[in-house]
Design a protein around this nucleic acid. Structure first.
Lengths: 340, 340
DNA sequence: CTGAAAGCGCTTACAG
DNA sequence: CTGAAAGCGCTTACAG
């Protein structure tokens, strides 16, 4: 049995009330008394029991982070940013992933660590109604990542994919004004894919073009699938003078590799752009022109919002959108941006 | 105020003792009574208060995972493996990183989530005595990752770097029996670097060779540093018919890029091998010959050991070593292994 | 099989 | 400024 507040009280020859006061709102206690108590605490190596405290205070100093998956740099950056900020704010981070098959159910179950977490961050990447409803009655303050759910009453941190995608497509159009642009997405229900596709269609519409249906392809964000798909199309794409806009860097890297395997030159025979500016983007040859998405910053910002809400529960919902930036490298041709 | 056990008791017209029994060791309760209680629980959406429970049971069902850093795929794979297994075992995962500057201090502070976690997994990558002492008096069961601390009394999961490194060096020697082998490590105090270097020296010694001191280089595991360093040496290395053995894939990729930038051919002019078989290894051109280290499995195994210890606190310390495997690709020449 | 009661380790009015 | 006491929501002997 670890030392309790009672041990400290006995040793400092005070009541447990006084010990508790020293532990919390210091100012009320006589300086002498406080000193005795603090010494006793130090000598005994006393640490207040988290559970007893939580029972009274209804506060655990633990924040939950629920991600759709823990795979890939994308998510690990979020975790990293969130972790740093959480520590800065005096919180611990409880992490959980929602696997594809249990989706909404599981967000609930994780929230079911209820009482354990003071607040939660949930990343939503699919348009599942189950998730959305389960978010509705969260028992703790919630920050939703990246899924800009309409009419939601909670705080939100999103990344401005739309603007990033628009800028990228404009960049492609400026370099290849008449080329067909092939859009390689993730699943059709994926929110990021939807955003990026909308941006792509909007920009094309602005210049009076309508993408042909066969130039919009839904894959699954993975290198393998994209490589397999691209391997069968690169020659055709190249012959049509197409440009490929992949919705993430993994798929863009796959297209580059498929092109090289077909002895095509990138970007001369087939320009390729990615999205996210992950580590991969700088390791392919040629390096990827892509869009930088501030993942770590998103994790940090979410924690920040959550902590602020915990302090002022009644303030109006906050919606933060983090800016993106086109990073021009070599995979699309064109002049490199300064400092990229 | 959420519904409490009292609300349930009232609604089911029993005492809170009975409700508690239904919640825990089911079998003692009359079937009829239990049914009433279960209905009341369902109708009220009752969930036991984690803190009250923890206070009595001294159990939170939360496991802590402390990593040296949250950067890179290396660590995210551990998290991923740990998370999956933790959920499988009915635990939640609390994650924390130890930043370089607060090292041992902070492991303690994290353990200071004391009482909050039922057990901890700590990854040790540096030979810091502060960390080691702080591990000594951990207040909860501990599993140490990868730092094979001598005489330790806790469970350990290590990856067999030594064997992997030996196999890799043997492979290099079989292809280039007389070539100098340049070893590019992380910091000199990094445990993995030490292991890999020892293996390298041992294998060379076996064939009666002693590496020249200038062929042993300590860097910092980063692409940037390795690229800068390698850029100044690749020509020299190539002229000496050297082979580069980098202690991780990032650095190997940097050497490959530095060589290509110097218009050298890899592997013809400069064979390069990496370590870890991260995503990067398959994205460089040529792809990296490297050593596969089962990171996700390490995370999972650690959780498994921790859960087992939680169930039987007195069993003898367990030390698991996970096997590695040389993956032959193109960056070193030689025949590719089947299926790689 | 079930209930009344003690107790886990704290915090916080309430008196003094 | 300090202490005695109630209470947070549970679990678990102890009786019955």
């Amino acid at each position: 049995m670890a030392t309790s507040i009672e041990d400290v009280a006995r040793r400092a020859d005070v009541s447990i009330s006084t010990v508790s006061r020293v532990l919390n709102r210091h100012n009320v206690v006589n300086a002498q008394t406080r000193k005795r108590v603090e010494e006793a605490i130090a000598e005994l190596g006393y640490r207040p029991n988290v559970f007893a405290r939580g029972l009274m205070l209804r506060k655990s100093n633990v924040l939950g982070l629920v991600l759709p998956d823990l795979h890939g740099e994308f998510y690990s950056e979020i975790i990293r940013g969130a972790n740093l900020k959480a520590r800065e704010c005096g919180y611990h981070l409880l992490i959980s992933s929602v696997t594809a098959d249990d989706d909404g159910q599981d967000v609930l179950a994780t929230i079911g660590a209820q009482g354990l977490v003071d607040g939660m961050i949930v990343m939503v990447t699919e348009m599942s109604s189950r998730i959305r409803t389960s978010l509705g009655d969260a028992p703790v303050p919630l920050v939703v990542l990246d899924g800009d759910i309409q009419g939601a009453t909670h705080d939100t941190v999103a990344i401005d994919h739309r603007n990033g995608a628009e800028s990228l497509v404009r960049h492609l159009l400026s370099l290849y004004p008449t080329s067909p642009i092939v859009f390689l997405g993730g699943h059709a229900t994926n929110l990021d894919t939807i955003d990026r596709l909308n941006a792509y269609q909007k920009v094309l519409a602005e210049v009076g073009r309508e993408p042909s249906q066969k130039d919009i392809v839904y894959l699954d964000y993975s290198y393998e699938t994209a490589f397999r798909y691209a391997s069968e199309r690169v020659l055709e794409w190249s012959a049509a003078r197409s440009v490929v806009f992949a919705a993430n860097d993994e798929m863009a890297a796959a297209v580059v590799d498929a092109a090289l395997a077909a002895t095509l030159d990138v970007p001369a025979d087939l320009p390729v752009a990615g999205f996210d500016d992950t580590r991969i983007a700088q390791l392919t040859r040629p390096r990827l022109t892509t869009v930088r998405t501030p993942m770590a910053q998103m994790g940090a910002k979410a924690i920040e919002l959550l902590c602020e809400r915990l302090e002022s529960p009644d303030r109006p919902p906050n919606r933060v959108t983090l800016p993106t930036e086109v990073v021009v490298r070599e995979s699309c041709g064109g002049p490199p941006a300064p400092g990229s």
